[in-house]
Amino acid sequence: MIMRVLLAMAVPVAGILIGLLYKGIDRILAARMQGRVGPPVVQPFRDVRKLLVKENIVPDDAVGWLFGSMPFIALVSVMAILLYLPLGVAPVLEGYGDLILVLYLLIIPSLALVLGGFASSSPYASVGGQREMVKMMSYEFPLAIAVISVAWLLYSSGAGNVFSLSVISGTPVWGLAGIPGLAGLALIFLCLLFVIPGELGRVPFDVSEADSEIAGGIFAEYSGRNLALFYLADAVKAVAMASLAVALFLPYTVSGIFGLGGAAAPAADFLFHLLKVFLVLFVSSTVMRVVTGRLAISRVVSVYWKYPVILSFLGLLLIMGGTLV
């Protein structure tokens, strides 16, 4: 119990550090792919420190309490998600919440962005808020299908609580499906990788900030510590989203392979989990933003609702067909 309490205190803070570290790595990798050197890996930490010493400007016409509280709520909610996710080891709050709760919690940071934008009194931020909302409705559908597919596969294989993240991470889905099911899972995993940049507001789905179109959109009026909190929420959300993808599709550990025991086993599994998180983010975020340009908002909706929805439905049908045959 004491260990759990200590982990509940350490994991959210570690999430910030890991998120900022990946932001640094992401910027270096993206720079190298574009033939640049890139900033030092600690640049995101410096960015946060810089933002904290900047003035915290609140527009005269903004709804002050809403404007100021949204960055706070975004960071708190996204840090709380980490407590329910398996990070190479069982979730810290194992048994106290499940995958459905995680999906709801993932919506809160995006809603905080929307409300923060609307409360800014800026036309650019209002447009950004609307775009964020439309984007949310676009990517939630394929995300829900991905989750339902995994739950369905676990349910049909006789697993107990199919929405428990311990059950999900303890039962790799690739071993449960036949050949059609494997093809279906591969399609759904691909769709989930496509959802991640949308969730994180990265190129090509950065329509809600779009510096060159709407001057930063939602963040147009944010500065100083409020912007720092949104920046940190974004870093932690990347870790949470990638951890969710890893828990659903790549929940493998290494401690058993190397015959590790004692404290070395969870430490090795945690480090292996971080490696998988970085790989997922590298493919779905870093590579994606380097090789693509921003989509128009109308394209975002059609892109998400056409291809990932159709593909993930097809994947679900293949999985269901595989279990019924």
Partner: peptide, 23 residues
């Protein structure tokens, strides 16, 4: 099919809110 403990959630959120407030 699922479970949630609001009390544990609120306790954890209170701690995290304190950390965020420090930042």
């Amino acid at each position: 099919m699922g479970s949630w403990s609001p009390l544990v959630f609120l306790i954890c959120v209170a701690f995290i809110a304190a950390v965020v407030q420090i930042i």
